[in-house]
Amino acid sequence: MYELVQAGERTYYINSPAKIGLYLEGERDVYLIDSGNDKDAGRKVKKLLEQNGWELRAIINSHSNADHIGGNRFLQERYHCKVLGTGLENAFTRYPLLEPSFLYGGYPCKELKNKFLMAQPSEPQVITPEDLPAGMELMELPGHFFEMIGLRTPDDVWFLADCLVGEETLCKYHVSFIYDVRAYLETLERVEQLEGKLFIPAHMQAVEDIRPAVQRNREKVHELLGLIESLCGEPLVFEQVLKGVFDHFKLRLDWSQYVLAGSTVRSYLSYLYDEGRVVTEVQDNLLLWKRA
């Protein structure tokens, strides 16, 4: 874990729980794509940089989930480097309490104030094309989170953040986090059309052909949409819908899954509601979801 893997002439990634991209400009200047899940990840990145005689110039955050920005603060304090991201993601990066608050839908209790949901704060600025190395391309990848981005390096290597998860993860957890289902499906359509030498999602193996992974993730979204719609054959409160999903896949609920999968199931319900496939009614002060 945390070994440096060369993916192109000047493009590397650090094999970690959420893969960290690295692009070398010139002889020494390094641009990171994300920074890992905590300060320990930051320390390991620093060690790799020192071993190679490299200097950190900037961290480009694909989005603000804690496992992608957790090393920001440690590295920014050591290198005084820029942290770059998109506007709304930067708000979460600067004020990490926003993430567990958003996921829970209220003030987060102590079980939710952990490094997996709440990184240490860092000071980001809005990314512009001028901030990128020559030849690096930015692509918007909304859906998983608010304003997530991907990046293509001049070596024709794509870093795709969290817009895809691998087959093992899909089979184990089934409900991967999605904020906006419609935007996510549109992102999959765009990613499916990409050309490149190598594609590196953060939570699956690097692949030369991204299309099978796109199709598998799309199938899982539609499977979940069909499941949730069928569960609403009788009027259910949200908690019953969530229980039905977990019972169907034989999953076990805990605090982390309650907020991550729970937020995702709410997003699926919103999509189905906007599509006219489910409707709501209030009975006895309960908001009920039912199939249209």
Results as ranks from 00 to 15, higher is better:
Leu260Trp: 02
Ala41Phe: 02
Val221Asn: 06
Arg277Ile: 09
Leu269Lys: 00
Ser270Leu: 13
Gln76Asn: 08
Glu50Trp: 07
Asp155Arg: 03
Trp158Tyr: 12
Lys19Asn: 11
Phe159Tyr: 10
Pro100Glu: 06
Glu123Val: 05
Lys47Trp: 12
Ile127Val: 15
Leu231Glu: 01
Val282Gly: 07
Phe177Val: 03
Glu55Gln: 14
Gln120Asn: 15
Trp255Gly: 08
Lys250Phe: 11
Ser270Asp: 13
Pro121His: 05
Cys109Glu: 10
Leu287Tyr: 09
Pro133Ala: 07
Ser256Met: 13
Asp29Thr: 03
Ala206Ser: 14
Ser267Glu: 01
Leu22Gly: 02
Asn114Val: 15
Asn285Glu: 15
Glu229Trp: 08
Glu281Val: 14
Glu123Thr: 12
Glu208Phe: 10
Glu50Gln: 11
Leu231His: 01
Lys172Ser: 11
Leu260Ala: 01
Glu130Cys: 03
Thr153Gln: 00
Ser230Met: 12
Arg252Trp: 05
Val157Trp: 01
Glu239Leu: 07
Gly196Trp: 07
Glu9Met: 05
Val181Gly: 02
Leu32Met: 11
Cys232His: 06
Ser230Lys: 14
Tyr2Ser: 04
Val5Trp: 10
Val191Gly: 05
Ile14Thr: 12
Glu3Phe: 06
Thr86Glu: 14
Phe159Leu: 07
Asn114Trp: 02
Ala66Pro: 02
Lys44Leu: 12
Arg73Leu: 06
Leu24Cys: 04
Met136Glu: 08
Arg216Asn: 13
Thr264Ile: 00
Glu27Asp: 14
Ser122Tyr: 06
Ser263Leu: 04
Leu32Gln: 04
Pro100Trp: 07
Glu168Asp: 14
Pro142Trp: 03
Pro201Ile: 04
Asp162Val: 05
Asp38Tyr: 08
His222Ala: 04
Asn114Ile: 15
Phe92Pro: 08
Glu137Asn: 02
Val221Asp: 06
Gly166Asn: 08
Trp54Phe: 14
Tyr184Asn: 06
Glu9Phe: 04
Leu160Gly: 01
Gln215Ala: 15
Asn217Ile: 00
Asp254Tyr: 00
Glu195Lys: 12
Ser256Phe: 15
Tyr273Gln: 14
Gly71Met: 09
Phe145Ala: 09
Arg73Pro: 04
Val245Pro: 04
Ser16Gln: 07
Ile200Phe: 03
Pro96Phe: 05
Ile60Met: 06
Leu242Cys: 05
Gly143Thr: 01
Phe199Tyr: 06
Tyr107Gln: 05
Leu132Gln: 01
Glu130Ser: 13
Asp209Glu: 14
Asn65Ala: 12
Glu55Leu: 12
His203Asn: 11
Leu117Ala: 01
Ala202His: 09
Trp54Asn: 09
Arg182Phe: 10
Val207Met: 06
Lys19Glu: 06
Leu22Phe: 00
Gly105Ser: 03
